[in-house]
Design a binder for these strands. Structure first.
Length: 747
DNA sequence: ATACATACC
DNA sequence: TACTGGTATGTAT
């Protein structure tokens, strides 16, 4: 409690709105006065009302926790304590103090860049951002309580003279590149956390450094630097304060020592020379501690925590929990409710925490309270999602929402393309004018990347939300689209393996199957191999992956020709695959790019089809041509299968060998258990799955995001498959012609 | 798998 | 007038 989360009764609740002065340059502010202004600026706004609501939720969580706590007996605690102690011993044994981990963080990065480039700003309170939101503020502005994540209009009330500079990301990125070049010299495997921040493992550098001659540790000011950026900086690097001319005349060299502190000081010196911006750093035996340390002497300072257990424990005990990366506003408040405000309390209450928090949470607390953290920096991790979102003034018109949605999908598709990624899960994010946030996601059985594919899903999700909104319209202030579940090598291999297994269930032909596993093949080749396996195991007839017809030949060339034919039919047919492009613009009345996603969660497609079509309707199902509506849904699936080749209904076949499968059929492609034991239906389902996979591999042009139905579920296929959203034909034929593709596929 | 909350910059 | 945008992860269902 002495940490003073709650300092005035006025904010007895609403800790989320109050000033967050847990930040360098914000010590000793008149918090009450500042909070009063913040509250007055916000009160009554929709934002404020929503914060109130969220605050209430947190309070209830805390209440629930306190009730739990009340039920805990001495017995429980004793047992928990024993477990905690055991674990502490275990963790203690794993303590590694041998690494030297550094966390570097540029000081007020965006603001500093702007000040550097506009000297006018240097002695003014300034912030980077807009009237709506600030990204960061300089130290002068922080004295007024102006800080990152505060809206500009409130900042202006706190500090009427505040200058707000718009963000200039390209510039920050350029500076970021410069500092990363320096980081790389100390640790080629450094981990960037953002444009201005990184973890480095200095251990190896320091080892080498011990044998370096002075010359390698000597650096000279390259240019005259302006006076310190921050008038109140506690310290500055030695030897760069010569404002009279070039460097420190003659004696402007500095030889840096061999210690960790010296190496880090050198790195910061070089950053300042190169960018005219200052950085702060923390040096510690692990990442968790290094991060806290870098904040300690901010700005333009560094702090080294010695690599001894005593120093670490001493440091940690006095650490407010809020300083720990991962403990934010809410966790802090929950811990405070238990009388825990620093890490000493944390260690004292560990048994209790183990009973009140999830395993991951209390394990984290445990590590923190022992001063433990990662001692090696994880290698660059692959991204797990990609998203784009936009805030705007109230938007209620369906057509505007749709076209915005499409725009977002376009941006996302473009970004995906840059990184060559495809994902299976599309998530739509909506925030209404009351600041209530909703996310709606759908996972497809295959990865997608194009605008049309993503939009088809996002639009469907949006439509569903709109349909469920009780007093229409949907009044939005933000929309976002995210894609995740990226297709990766890890993802593909087991999948392909299972296809092989499926195709040869009773053959002991291990040579073929194991080839697929042993040979290190690229994704494309892996699938290629699967089809070879298919054809080889079936010797005289090949199944076309596009039209599913059996081709009676032993000659791969002949078979390839057949597939080429099918594929070129695919891209030519104006009414089918390629049809949607010309009308891809959002058009409420004639939106034939609509691709219903089958198997939707609420199972409401039948309901939708019955709905009367209104002029404001996103749904275009009512306007769909009815010619292909079948009395038998079964038949529509067959139609779906035949689309790419011709109009004939084709029954696909599978090797007899799979007829001896047991009664429970699991599709090897989508992994879903099928309800029916009918092998014909089952085969058909697998065909559909395979077809989609393959068509996507062949260039992603030919299919729309349909969930291949379970054998008992044939919803919504007839229409969707015939009228899918697809890439423009021009794009399709470019660079990825059928000929090339197939050659690559089969050779 | 989905939805929502928390956290970080 | 006006309270972000991008990513990861934890928690609950």
């Amino acid at each position: 409690m002495e940490n003073g989360v709650i300092s005035t009764k006025a904010e007895g609740f609403l800790s989320r709105m109050a000033l967050n002065d847990n930040k360098a340059g914000m010590e000793g502010l008149d918090r009450d006065k500042i909070n009063k202004i913040i509250m007055e600026s916000s009160k009554g706004s929709r934002f404020y009302e929503n914060e109130l609501k969220k605050e209430e939720q947190v309070n209830q969580r805390i209440e629930k926790m306190m009730l739990q706590k009340a039920k805990i007996t001495e017995q429980h605690l004793k047992k928990a304590q024993a477990q905690v102690d055991r674990m502490a011993t275990e963790l203690e044994r794993s303590r590694d103090l041998s690494r030297v981990i550094v966390h570097v963080d540029m000081d007020a990065f965006y603001a500093a860049v702007e000040m550097r480039d506009c000297p006018e700003l240097k002695d003014k309170p300034m912030a980077v951002g807009s009237m709506s939101m600030l990204s960061t503020s300089n130290y002068h502005a922080r004295k007024y309580g102006v800080r990152a994540a505060m809206p500009g209009f409130i900042a202006k009330k706190l500090c009427p003279d505040l200058v707000i500079v718009p963000t200039n990301f390209d510039k920050y990125r350029a500076v970021s590149k410069e500092i990363r070049e320096i980081f790389a010299e100390y640790d080629p495997h450094f981990q960037p956390l953002s444009l201005d921040e990184a973890y480095l493992d200095f251990t190896d550098h320091l080892d080498q450094r011990q044998s370096w001659p002075d010359t390698l540790r000597t650096h000279r000011p390259r240019a005259n630097l302006s006076p310190v950026l921050f008038e109140d900086s506690p310290s500055s690097s030695p030897c760069l304060l010569d404002s009279t001319g070039f460097g420190a005349a003659g004696g402007g060299f500095e030889v840096f020592g061999k210690s960790a502190e010296e190496a880090v000081r050198e790195m910061r010196f070089r950053i300042e020379q190169k960018t005219m911006l200052t950085a702060s750093a923390g040096i510690a035996p692990n990442m968790m501690l290094a991060k806290v340390c870098s904040d300690k002497n901010k700005p333009n300072g560094q702090y080294r925590l010695p690599s001894t257990k005593e120093a670490v424990m001493d440091f940690v005990q006095n650490l407010p929990v809020r300083k720990i990366c991962g403990i934010g506003k809410v966790s802090e408040k929950m811990l405070n409710a238990l009388g825990i405000s620093n890490c000493f309390h944390l260690s004292q209450q560990m048994a209790l925490l183990s009973l009140l928090f999830s395993e991951t949470a209390w394990h984290h607390f445990m590590q923190v309270s022992l001063g433990l953290g990662s001692t090696h920096i994880p290698r660059h991790e692959e991204r797990k999602s990609m998203s784009t979102e936009r805030t705007f003034r109230e938007m209620s018109k369906t057509e505007e929402q749709l076209s915005l949605c499409r725009e977002l999908c376009e941006d996302l598709a473009e970004d995906l393309k840059k990184e060559g990624l495809k994902g299976k899960t599309v998530t739509l994010k909506l925030k209404n004018v009351k600041f209530e946030v909703k996310t709606r996601a759908l996972t497809l059985p295959y990865a997608v990347a194009t605008v049309d594919e993503i939009f088809a899903v996002a639009k469907d999700l949006l439509k569903t939300e709109r349909d469920n909104e009780s007093p229409l319209p949907l009044r939005l202030r933000l929309m976002g689209v995210r894609i995740s579940a990226f297709a990766s090598a890890d993802d593909k291999k087991p999948l392909q393996k299972s296809i092989v297994g499926f195709l040869q269930p009773d053959k002991t032909d291990s040579s073929c199957a194991s080839q697929g596993i042993h040979q290190k093949m690229e994704k494309e080749h892996l699938s290629n191999h699967s089809f070879q396996t298919l054809t080889l195991s079936n010797c005289t007839r090949f199944t076309c992956p596009v039209c599913f017809r059996l081709v009676e030949t032993t000659d791969l060339t002949v078979f390839n020709k057949h597939i080429d034919q099918c594929l070129s039919d695919t891209s030519r047919k104006p009414n089918q695959i390629a049809a949607s492009d010309s009308e891809s613009d959002v058009d409420l009345e004639n939106d034939h790019t609509e691709c219903e996603v089958a198997g939707r969660r609420r199972g409401d497609s039948e309901v939708e089809e019955d709905k009367a079509k209104s002029s404001e309707e996103m749904d275009s199902s009512g306007a769909e041509p009815q010619e292909d509506q079948r009395s038998s849904k079964n038949k529509s699936v067959q139609m779906a299968l035949s689309i790419d080749c011709d109009n004939k209904t084709v029954t696909s076949q599978r090797p007899q060998s799979c007829n001896n499968k047991g009664p429970v059929l699991v599709c090897p492609i989508c992994q879903l258990t099928q309800d029916s034991n009918d092998l014909v239906l089952f085969n058909r389902h697998v065909d559909l799955c395979l077809n989609q996979e393959v068509l996507h591999e062949l260039g992603g042009q030919a299919s729309c995001p349909i969930n291949p139905p379970a054998v008992t579920n044939f919803k919504a296929l007839g229409k969707d498959v015939r009228d899918p959203p697809s890439s423009p034909p021009s794009k399709k034929s470019k660079g990825l012609g059928p000929r090339n593709t197939i050659d690559k596929f089969f050779r």
